Amino acid sequence: MPGQLRMIDCELCAPVVAAPASSLRLIANRIVASREEMLLVADHAPMTLGHLLLIPRDHHTGMASFVAARPDAATVIGELTRRYRHGFGACTVIEHGSGGTSSRAGSCIDHAHWHLFPFANELRPIVDDDYGASLKGLDSLTQFSRRYAGQDYLLHWDHDGARAALLDAPAHLPQYARSVVARHTDASARPYDWDWALRTDDELLGRTLDASRRLLTGHDSAAQLIEQESTTGDMT
């Protein structure tokens, strides 16, 4: 049904996951912002403070296909990513989108989702090393949807602009967005260090929810958050 997460066999659509109702990991408990078209939620196993997911309510396997089906969603995406940048001071988006057939994108969940991280362009060298010249610049979400809807692709969008590559070979690593952050923060990271099914950090998840809800509603500034984090522990 339009406007509802609706694929019962999809990990992001399913209204109930294998966790108690009180768990922070339940999607309903991780919502930071909601719109008719989409949700902004904390990743249930965040890689860094501020790791959020932008998820369409309708089931699509790639955000490009979602924007192609709902062109009005580009306005909402722009609003939510601007709010993220305003709150956290920077935003990097990574998505391994699937065309809906035999995905080579490296995502373990078939429901479209953008990973949002509070980086400016720190992850770019890793992505460039992996994909190099195959990444093509994008001028707009409309161009992105027209070029990549129904395709397997990698999207990388940071302070220096949006780029995407068609995937005609398997992604370099499974859970690619998570692996990039792991390699940026810890060169010795092993796959299980970023595997969302194995990683557990409820303390970081709780901090991400609290920070996101405060920053995205304008209650605090990024500078205030950094000062508070410095008194309670290093930002992850």
Rank of each mutant, 00 (worst) to 15 (best):
H156N: 00
A182Q: 02
A222N: 15
L198G: 04
F119S: 03
F119R: 04
D193G: 13
G161M: 07
V127F: 09
W196P: 15
A222R: 15
D129M: 07
F117G: 01
D202V: 01
L209C: 09
G150N: 01
S212Q: 08
V181Q: 06
L166S: 04
D195L: 05
E203G: 09
A105R: 02
C108L: 14
S140Y: 10
D210H: 07
R146G: 09
H184A: 01
L198R: 15
S188V: 12
A222F: 14
G150F: 05
Y176N: 11
Y148S: 09
D152F: 10
Y131T: 02
G132E: 05
N121R: 13
A187D: 04
A105E: 02
A187H: 04
L198N: 10
A112D: 02
D186T: 08
K136Y: 04
A120L: 03
L135K: 07
A177V: 01
H159S: 05
L155I: 02
D193K: 09
H219S: 12
R214T: 08
A223Y: 05
T101I: 00
A223L: 11
F144G: 00
L138W: 08
D158G: 08
P125K: 14
R207I: 10
L216V: 05
R147T: 15
E203R: 13
G206D: 13
G132Q: 11
A169Q: 14
P118V: 00
D158W: 01
W196R: 05
P191D: 01
